[in-house]
Design a binder for these strands. Structure first.
Length: 877
RNA sequence: GGGGGUGUAGCUCAGUUGGUUAGAGCGCAUGCUUGACAUGCAUGAGGUCAUAGGUUCGAGCCCUACCAUCCCCACCA
């Protein structure tokens, strides 16, 4: 093959992906001979396009999937999208608004038509984007939260929960978004510290000069007050309890009640109670049987209950007017500046209003308990483990889940009401008549379900639930669930309790959480900051492999990371390095009949690189198993760049360019062996480049995607030989270092003398390497005691003294200084070793190998010390 | 109010079960057209691992306190 000089991913990424698709490599078969390994995608919203968070999701999951697939599992990466009820509806409303249309104008059916068209467009686009990232999803199983399968699961679950009494309808205080005009769950409200005011109001006692002062942050709600509460133990107010107050502006008579909820120390110690507009007040209202007066409409304007003066006004305008009116009638005592936490809709950012409303709720306590147990008893394991604490924290304090939404885009609640007999029909299938009175006059509930209601079923709804399909039986429960820690509450927790409740099994064994991808300055990427990065643009510029590698490299599970162009460039440079190393190997192998490695005689350098490869295999496999993708990627980076390229390839050159045909063939054999295995190890991380190169290695067949992942082979570990060879490398480094220290150009050949006692054979075998890599004109051994006539530099390394005659470059005084510094360092090391070895505790308690190690080290340094002292003597005191 | 993260080289970050002389990338300095790669090669400078105690034969790692910084949950009107 003709390989380009530089790595150019555009030449092959799309082509390879098309081929993988065509060959059906992504398809996970229900092979009874294989063990299944399943990951379902965190389904991206169809609202728009993918961002770097999705890219990270996909890279992590795809890396694990490809790894397992190569290990022989039937690996299923199940793709899909989420209908994102509220988010999509907001987008479509916006889109219609541009054309001057409202939801009302187009009607429910018209609206849904637009929504489906939107889904087709953006859902398709997202799939295309994912393909660009190289993910090996089984597209034949592509799912959508509103497709037939998932919808059936939603109905099944809703009805089952209803029949078990775990889902109910009732008037409760909920979070209302006046922007989206729908109820929200607690999880969908974001709080922020907003500057506001504290308005202190005076409520007069009926037929008296007395009054009570209350404070509020939302004065407009006073129109719905139905009591004022004080703490029963508060002596200031004991005499007031039971008296009647006259609500200013409204004139309604309301009681003073006593309730523990009130904090004596806070404010005036008296609280106005508005059951319809505050969660705490609602509870107080229930305890005291207070009327609930709702003064606000769904769109955030005041209603008739607010009185003619305010009816129809927006809540914030009404607030101003009410404050003015209160001031005018003398009911306003004072206004204090006050910052407090205000809830905002997580989609449209409008200020959320707590409002009493009739909604559907899922009863959480019975569902939460087994879900907590599953994690507590390690049936599900979080990585990193600290997230289980966060999970417990949330699950233990969980309140009932408001699941109805006043939206059109979503799963319509499977409940019908009979206009004739008033009965409610909860059904998995659409009824045609009322089963109670046979009336045809039935209407379906107008509302849809929270998006997360269907997301919660994702690991099993996508596999066929409620039917016990073959897929369900084979692939469920899934194995790993990987997503960002920011959706633990929204998604992970809900999948856990849903999975346990409806399938009687935990939906996955492992939860692997990753952090948020931030911008270069550590800020969250957001539309308002305009600092978002489109992964496709990065792919376009650098290729998918570079993006994937840059997202994985140096990242620990659960930790946030920063995206930067520099990181992608570094990854791209690594790809280029892989590319060129491969090009080097393949070019040299061209026309050569490369023998299998098992048949050739290995040199010391060969054994060294094979040994390094084996430990790399070990490390990569181990760390992928622990979800430590960053460490695994780091090990590969070091192995390929430092060990393979900087050392081994350089070491090979003399054999490759030499005349010894056999030697050349055996070297190529090792080069191909190591390259092939390294590519296999790399493939899960960077699928394209590895496959592109793999096909050109002599002796390989087909795609690397379906090759077997390398297995550690203890026979190839060559621990002793590898260690011995490192002395040769040390000599090379030492000579280079000496040259650089005195400004001798690296290309200038120098004679190298070695004084060594033990490992002469190895050093002699390495003479050629030393000559080539250190720029030596020759390597000679000095007998002990022999000395040279020329001026020399010498340096002591482990097991050897390296002596280089550098003639005129030698500055005796400078060299003495260096030697003395070196001596000092070595003496320091001896001292350190001594103090350890003289410590009885260390000798007795530390593992034996460590103690032996320390002894050996001490010996080594003492030997070095003596040699350095001898050198100093030679230079003359 | 409760919970959690982070703090290691100029910058971005690794550092696994506590065990060699604490690492990488980028940046910096010096020198290299060494027949794969300047998206490269070699050499080097740069760290009292936030601070103070403690446990241990041994601490970047475990414990306690404290400082800084970020996040999540709760929502006292």
């Amino acid at each position: 093959m003709e390989m380009q000089k530089t790595y150019n991913p555009k030449d092959f990424e799309d082509r390879l992906y098309a081929e993988w698709m065509e060959k059906n490599y992504f398809r996970a078969e229900r092979d009874p001979a294989k063990i299944p390994f399943t990951i379902v995608i965190p389904p991206p919203n169809i609202t728009g396009q993918l961002h770097l968070g999705h890219a990270l999701d996909n890279t992590i999951i795809d890396t694990l999937i490809r790894f397992k697939r190569m290990q022989g599992y039937s690996a299923l990466y199940l793709p899909g999208c989420d209908h994102a009820s509220i988010a999509t509806e907001v987008k479509i409303v916006e889109e219609m608004k541009k054309k001057g249309l409202t939801k009302k104008d187009v009607g429910r059916d018209g609206f849904l038509e637009r929504a489906w068209a939107w889904k087709e467009k953006y859902g398709g686009r997202i799939v295309e984007q994912m393909k660009k990232m190289g993910v090996s999803c089984d597209w034949s199983r592509l799912a959508f939260t509103m497709d037939e399968r998932c919808s059936r699961a939603v109905r099944e679950v809703f009805v089952n929960l209803y029949e078990k009494g775990l889902i109910y309808r009732g008037d409760r205080i909920i979070n209302w978004c006046p922007g989206c005009k729908t109820a929200l769950s607690d999880a969908e409200v974001e709080y922020s510290e907003d500057a506001s005011h504290f308005w202190h109001l005076k409520y007069p006692v009926k037929d008296s000069d007395e009054y009570i002062v209350v404070a509020t942050t939302r004065p407009e709600t006073m129109l719905g007050d139905t009591a004022v509460a004080v703490n029963p133990a508060d002596e200031r107010y004991t005499h007031m309890v039971g008296k009647t107050l006259v609500l200013p502006l409204v004139g309604r008579e309301i009681p003073v009640i006593a309730d523990e909820y009130v904090d004596k120390e806070f404010g005036s110690g008296a609280v106005k109670i508005t059951p319809a507009h505050d969660p705490n007040d609602f509870e107080v209202g229930l305890r005291h049987d207070l009327p609930v007066i709702r003064v606000m409409n769904d769109d955030g304007t005041m209603n008739e209950e607010a009185g003619d003066a305010y009816c129809g006004m927006d809540r914030f305008a009404a607030r101003e007017k009410i404050v003015e009116d209160l001031k005018a009638c003398g009911a306003l005592v004072k206004i204090e500046p006050h910052t407090h936490n205000v809830g905002h809709c997580y989609r449209c950012k409008s200020t959320v209003e707590p409002i009493v409303s009739k909604q559907w709720f899922v009863k959480m306590a019975p569902l939460a308990k087994p879900a907590i147990d599953a994690v507590a008893r390690n049936k599900i394991k979080f990585t990193p483990s600290r997230f289980s604490k966060i999970y417990f924290n949330w699950m233990e304090g969980i309140k009932d889940w408001c699941v109805s939404r006043q939206l059109w885009w979503g799963h319509r609640i499977p409940v019908w009401y009979c206009d004739d007999c008033g009965e409610m029909i909860v059904s998995k299938t659409d009824p045609s008549e009322c089963p109670h009175c046979r009336s045809k006059n039935i209407r379906q509930d107008e509302d849809v379900l929270d998006t997360w209601f269907s997301s919660a079923l994702w690991p099993f709804s996508t596999l066929g639930y409620p039917d016990k399909t073959d897929d369900f039986n084979y692939f469920y429960p899934t194995d790993v669930l990987s997503c960002g820690y920011d959706i633990i509450f929204f998604w992970v927790a809900r999948m856990i309790f849903s999975g346990i409740e409806h399938t009687k099994k935990v939906p996955f064994r492992d939860v692997l959480l990753h952090g948020i991808v931030r911008d270069e300055q550590g800020r969250k990427m957001s539309k308002s900051l305009g600092n978002g990065i489109d992964p496709l643009e990065v792919v376009e510029e650098y290729g998918a492999d570079s993006l994937r590698f840059s997202l994985i490299q140096g990242v620990a599970p659960g930790n946030d990371s920063r995206y930067s162009k520099g990181k992608v460039e570094a990854a791209r440079n690594f790809m280029n390095k892989i590319w060129n190393a491969s090009r080097f190997v393949l070019m040299n192998a061209e026309g050569v009949n490369v023998p299998p490695m098992a048949t050739v005689k290995l040199s010391a350098a060969d054994k060294w690189i094979v040994s390094r490869l084996e430990s790399c295999i070990k490390e990569v496999t181990l760390n992928l198993g622990k979800f430590e993708l960053g460490i695994a990627a780091g090990a590969l980076y070091d192995f390929l760049w430092s060990d393979f390229c900087d050392w081994y390839i350089e070491l090979c050159k003399s054999a490759l360019y030499g005349d010894d045909v056999e030697k050349k063939a055996s070297t190529l054999s090792v080069l191909c062996f190591v390259l092939e295995n390294a590519l296999k190890l790399l493939h899960p991380f960077v699928p394209f480049i590895t496959d592109e190169i793999f096909r050109n290695i002599p002796g390989t067949q087909g795609s690397i995607m379906v090759a077997e992942f390398p297995r550690y082979n203890a026979k190839l570990a060559y621990k002793k030989e590898a260690k011995a060879f490192e002395t040769v490398m040390d000599v090379i480094k030492c000579v280079r270092n000496m040259k650089a220290n005195v400004g001798c150009p690296p290309s200038k050949k120098v004679k190298v003398y070695l004084a060594a006692a033990a490992n002469r054979r190895m050093l002699a075998a390495g003479a050629d390497a030393i000559a080539r890599l250190a720029g030596a004109s020759g390597v000679e051994f000095l007998e002990s005691g022999a000395s040279l006539q020329e001026k020399t530099f010498s340096q002591v390394i482990e097991g050897c003294t390296v002596i280089v005659p550098l003639g005129e470059l030698v500055d005796i005084e400078k060299e003495k200084v260096r030697l003395r510094q070196e001596l000092e360092r070595v003496i320091g090391e001896i001292g350190r070793a001594d103090s350890k070895l003289q410590n009885r505790g260390f000798i007795e308690k530390a593992p034996k190998n460590l103690v032996d190690n320390e002894r050996a080290k001490r010996e080594k340094f003492i030997e070095m010390k003596e040699k350095i002292e001898a050198q100093i003597r030679d230079l003359g005191e």
